[in-house]
Design a protein around this nucleic acid. Sequence first.
DNA 1: TTGTAAGCGTTATCAT
DNA 2: ATGATAACGCTTACAA
Lengths: 357, 357
Amino acid sequence: MTITLPQQSHTVADIKALIHRESRRVTSYDVAIVAGVSQSAVSRCFKPGASVSKATFARVMQAATDLDYTPNAAARSLNTRRSNLVALVVSHMVTLHYPELLAELSRQFALFGMRILLFSQPRGSDLGATLADVWQHQVDGAVVAAHLSGAQAGEFERRQVPVVLFNRHLGDGGVSAIVCDQAGAARTLASRLAAAGHQRFALIDGPARSAIAQERMRGVADRLAELGLAPPFRVSGEHDYASGARGLREIIGRLGQVPDAIICSNDAMAIGCLDTARHEFKIDVPGQLSVTGFDGSGPAGWLSYNLTTLRQPVPQMAQATVEMLMGLIGAGAAAPQRRMFSAKVIDGATARLGPAC
Amino acid sequence: MTITLPQQSHTVADIKALIHRESRRVTSYDVAIVAGVSQSAVSRCFKPGASVSKATFARVMQAATDLDYTPNAAARSLNTRRSNLVALVVSHMVTLHYPELLAELSRQFALFGMRILLFSQPRGSDLGATLADVWQHQVDGAVVAAHLSGAQAGEFERRQVPVVLFNRHLGDGGVSAIVCDQAGAARTLASRLAAAGHQRFALIDGPARSAIAQERMRGVADRLAELGLAPPFRVSGEHDYASGARGLREIIGRLGQVPDAIICSNDAMAIGCLDTARHEFKIDVPGQLSVTGFDGSGPAGWLSYNLTTLRQPVPQMAQATVEMLMGLIGAGAAAPQRRMFSAKVIDGATARLGPAC
DNA sequence: TTGTAAGCGTTATCAT
DNA sequence: ATGATAACGCTTACAA
C-alpha cells in the first residue's frame, strides 16, 4: 500500500477544475502532475512491457483513474506510425450475404488490439473515392471484399499498406487473398448432379460484375462440357430472392420446358427459385427438378428449404484473413500469398446428387 | 521540421527519393517545397473554404498529386479535436438481424464525411472494456445498439461524447435515442389477434437481457390483460431459428395442447416455430394456430413463409440516427431527445388477424 | 528506473 | 493571400 502524499497544491480537484476552465482534454501531463512524476513516466505506464517501478506504476494509475485519463490514439498514432486501425472495404452486398463475417472479423482483430474502420461501398459508387479516405486514416492494413482494380492494388503497395482480399483475387496474384474454391466446388456439384442422371442444366447467374459468380458458373460450365453434356441454359440477375424467382420464370419461358437441374449463384437466388418452382409452378423439387445454391447461409438449413448447397467456411476464412493481414503488418513486406478453402457440399433435400467421388 | 536538401534541385523525383531514403511519410512540407509555397499554404488548400489564390491552389494540387500526398488524419485530429470518426457499438446479434443497418449507417455518415469505427460486442463480453477502447480513439460521437448501463451513459456525458442509442433507451431518458415503438406494435398485434377470436396465447420470448424482447412481450401481455384474456404462456430462448423450434416443443409439451396463437419475439424465432409446427407437428398454420414474428426481415416475406409480422422501418431509423447524432456533434451539448418510429403490421399468411382499429 | 527534450504532421493564430 | 510559429498529446532516444 502506498499512501498518496499531498502534491503541493496540485490536487485532483484543482487539476480537474483547471482542465475544465481551459476546456481541454485530460493529458498525460495532467496525470504526471497529480502523480508527481514526469510525463514520460506516465507514457511508459501505458506501454506494455516498459520499465517502471511498481510504486510509480501504482501512483500513475491511481492518478489516471482519478482524472479519467485515456491515452489519445491520434497522438500515439502520430509518432508510432501505428494506428491500430484496419480498413474493411466491403461492397454493399457483403453484409447481406455474410452477416456473421463482420462480427467475426471484428472479434478476431480485437484479439490483436486492432479496430475496424468500415468502408461500406454503396452500390455503383466509386471505389477510388473510398480509397482516398482510407489513405487519410493511416490504417495499418486493409481487408477488401470488393472489386479492386490492378491500379488500385498497386496503390496499396506504393503506400505500403498491407492488404488481404476476401473471396476475390487479382489475376496476376500480386495481392494476398483468402478465397474459397468456387470453381472447384462448382465442378463437384456439377459432377454429382450429372452422376444422378441430370442432363439438361440451367444456371441462374449473378451480376456480370461479380467475380465470384463468374467463377462459380464457369466451374459448372467447364465440368458439364468435360462430361459431354449440353451447355447449360443461362440467365442472370442480382444476388437476391427476387432474381431467383425471375430467373426461373425466364428459364421456363424461354426454354419452353423445365430443365432437370438449376444451379443458382447463391442461396438467396436458389431459395427464390425453389419457392417459385413449388408455389407458382407446382413443380416437384427435387423429384422433377433439382435446385442448388451456394454459400450455406442460415436460411438454407431451415426445414422448409433444406437446400442442397455449398457451404463456405466463413468463420475459418475470417480467422485466416486476420492472421494473414496481421502477419503482413508485422512483416513489413512479404511475398503475397493466396490461401484457399474448400466449400463443403451440403446434401440437402432440393437436389438429387450422385455419390461423391 | 527542417528538411535538408541538395541545394539546387527540388524536383519531384528528388523529394521522392529523399522521402524513400528516410523512410518517412509524404508530408505537407514536401508538397510545399515542390510547389514552392509555405507549408501552411498547403494546409489551407486542403481545407474547404480557406482563402487561397487560384494559382497557388493549382500548384499545390499538382505537387500533391505528383507526390501522392494525402493529409494525415491523425495529425489533423490531434489539433482540430475532430476525428471524423463515429463509434458504432453493436451487440453481436445486431448485424445478424439487421444486415442492411450497417450499410445504411455507413452510407449516411459518409455524406457528412464521417467514418464508422466498428465495435462489435462479442456475446457475453464486457461493454466496459469495449468503451475504454472507444475513448482512446477520440470518436466524435457514438451509435450504440447494445445494452448501456446508466453509469456507462454517464461516462459519455462526462467525456462530452454525443451518443445516440439505436432501438434501446435508458429509463431516465437522459440519452438520445432512436427507437421503434415495440410495445405499441405488440399491443396492436395482440388486439388484432384477439379480434380474430384467439383466446389461448403463448409467447416465445427472447433472452431476458434483451430490452427489446422485454418491451415487445410486455406490450402483448398488457394488452391481453386489458382485453380480459388469460395471461399468455411464456417460454424463452435466444433470438434464433432453433429457439423458435425449441420454444414450440416446450409450449406443446408443457401445455399439453396447441395454443391458438404464438407470438414470437422476432422473425427468426417465428420461422423456426412455424417450420416446426408445420413439418414436425403437422399443425395447420394459420388454420389451427397463428404464428407471428417481429422485425419484417427479408425471409419473412419469402413465399414459403409469408410471415405475419411487424416491420421496423430500419432505413428511416438509420437516417434519423445519423441526423440526430450529427446534430448533437454540431451543437455541442443539447437536450437529449427520443424519436420514435412505428412498426407496420405485415398481414401475412401465418396468422388470422382481425381488422385494424 | 526516471527525467529531458526532440519530434510525429497537421491546424490555427497572427503578423505581413 | 501568404508565411512564420506555436500548439495538439504522445513516444522515444538519450542522459542522469
